[in-house]
Design a protein around this nucleic acid. Structure first.
Length: 281
DNA sequence: CACCAGGTCTCTC
DNA sequence: GAGAGACATGGT
C-alpha cells in the first residue's frame, strides 16, 4: 500500500486497494461515526480521524504506527484480489468492494462485540456496544474507550440486559469473568482448529463468532465466518442442501484456502449491499 | 401477525 | 455428533 507519514497524518494516495467507506461498512468494525469530510474510528482506547479528499485520504492520529497496522497498510491487497479473481463470480464481487481491507483489531474487543453480534443486526449491535462504552469505558476527550475487562467484570447480568444485550447478557457475564481471570488469548503457534476450539470454550462463542475473532483480531485468513448472508451465497453457489452451517463453513474454507477470510469479506459486503448473487461462470 | 438480523446454548437421542 | 427449540430486541 502506498502511504507516507506527513505532518497532517498518514497520507494514503487514492488507490483501488483502500476505500474508507467499504472498510468500515463491511461489518468488521462497530465503533465509528460518519462525518462530513470522513469518519471517526475507535479501537480500544485509541482513535483516529479518517479524512477523505479527492486525490488522497489522511489518517489523523496520535498513534500513527498503531493505525498503520490497524488498517493493514503493509499488505498487498492487489495480489490477494488477483488470486481470488480465479474463482467463479469473484470478479464482480471484488469489483464491488475492491477497497476493502481486513483490520487488525483488539482480541477482547472482538470477543465482546461478536458475542453481542449473534442473531442480531448491525445497527443494534452498534447501539449496544456504544452503550457499553459509555457506561463502562474511560472518557478520552470527546469519546469513550472500550472498557477495561475488570470494569466489565464488576457488572452483572442485569446491567448487560439494561444496555440491550438481551439473552446474551449471561454469556457476557460468563466470558468477561473468564477473561478477567487469566483465560489465555495467546494463540501463537496453534493450528486453526486448536485455536478455534480454545476460543469456543468461552460462553457465547460458537463456530461463527470464533471465526470472526480469528479473522478480525488475529488475521487468521484461513477461516470463513459463515452467517445467514454467507449461507445465501453458499446455497446459490453450490445449491441449497440440508447440510449443517458448520459443514458449509468447512467446505467454503477448504475451497478458498488461505484466502478464505478475504473472500468472505468481499462476498459479505456484496451480498449485504442488496446484490442478488447469480451463479454464472 | 410472521420473519429476519454477522448464532449459541441446552436438551435429547 | 446431529437435530429441534428457546432465546431478547427492534425493524419491516
Amino acid at each position: 500500500m502506498n502511504y507516507e507519514y506527513t505532518s497532517e497524518g498518514i497520507r494514503i494516495n487514492k488507490s483501488e486497494d483502500f476505500n474508507a467507506k467499504q472498510i468500515l461498512e463491511c461489518g468488521q468494525i462497530f465503533r465509528y461515526t460518519v462525518e462530513n469530510d470522513g469518519f471517526n474510528i475507535y479501537s480500544t482506547n485509541k482513535t483516529c480521524r479518517l479524512i477523505c479528499k479527492k486525490h488522497h485520504d489522511i489518517i489523523c492520529t496520535n498513534n500513527p504506527k498503531e493505525f498503520v497496522h490497524f488498517f493493514d497498510l503493509n499488505r498487498d491487497y492487489g495480489e490477494i484480489k488477483q488470486s481470488l479473481m480465479g474463482y467463479p463470480n469473484m470478479k464482480n464481487i471484488i469489483s464491488h468492494g475492491s477497497g476493502i481491507r481486513i483490520l487488525n483489531q483488539n482480541p477482547i474487543e472482538m470477543i465482546i462485540s461478536f458475542i453481542i453480534s449473534a442473531n442480531n443486526n448491525i445497527p443494534r449491535i452498534q447501539t449496544i456496544i456504544e452503550k457499553l462504552c459509555f457506561e463502562c469505558g474511560d472518557q478520552v476527550n470527546d469519546y469513550y474507550a472500550f472498557p477495561e475487562i475488570k470494569v466489565l467484570n464488576s457488572k452483572g447480568e442485569l446491567f448487560y440486559r439494561a444496555i440491550g444485550a438481551g439473552y446474551r447478557a449471561k454469556y457476557l457475564v460468563n466470558t468477561v469473568d473468564a477473561l478477567a481471570n487469566g483465560f489465555s488469548l495467546d494463540l501463537q503457534g496453534m493450528n486453526i482448529s486448536s485455536a478455534r476450539k480454545h476460543l469456543m470454550k468461552l460462553m457465547g462463542v460458537g463456530r461463527k463468532v470464533a471465526d470472526c475473532i480469528l479473522l478480525f483480531a488475529y488475521h487468521r485468513t484461513e477461516v470463513f465466518p459463515t452467517d445467514t448472508w454467507i449461507i445465501k451465497y453458499y446455497d446459490d453457489l453450490f445449491g441449497a442442501t440440508n447440510i449443517s452451517v458448520t459443514k458449509k463453513a468447512d467446505i467454503l474454507s477448504e475451497y478458498y484456502g488461505k484466502l478464505s477470510g478475504y473472500a468472505q469479506q468481499y462476498i459479505f459486503y456484496y451480498m449485504r449491499s442488496g446484490y442478488k448473487f447469480i451463479n454464472k461462470n
